[in-house]
């Protein structure tokens, strides 16, 4: 094959980078729509669960995982140790809450 000129190859490079962005942006839109559809189709049982939830969460509760008197750093270590012990990647595990058990 003939050698490409620097200008032509530059245009191909720009076009290629653009195509990658175009493809992934469209995919992002598809995934966002999918997420919205799924969120709408979920049964509306959330308010009841919220009422029943205990109100004694410690400061530092992060998103879905609930931390009770456990600092973030300790929680991260516990999750890493559990993943290591059971031999499963961390991204395959979901921790719902971590609570410190205190001696009376």
């Amino acid at each position: 094959m003939e050698h490409l000129s620097i200008a032509t190859s530059g245009i191909i490079a720009l076009l290629g980078y653009g195509v990658v962005f175009f493809g992934l942006v469209l995919l992002m839109i598809v995934v966002m729509i999918l997420g919205k559809v799924m969120a709408r189709s979920k049964p509306a049982a959330a308010p009841q669960a919220a009422e029943a939830a205990p109100a004694a969460e410690a400061e530092g509760t992060a998103g879905k995982i609930k931390l009770f008197d456990v600092p973030d750093r300790d929680a991260a270590m516990i999750m890493a140790i559990v993943a290591n012990r059971i031999g499963k990647p961390l991204n395959e595990l979901r921790f719902r809450s971590i609570k410190e058990v205190k001696d009376e």
Binding site: L14, G16, Y17, V20, L24, M28
Partner: peptide, 12 residues
């Protein structure tokens, strides 16, 4: 996905 696209810069 945008970050996955941005990180293909080196390819081109």
């Amino acid at each position: 996905l945008l970050l996955g696209a941005a990180a293909q810069l080196g390819v081109f």
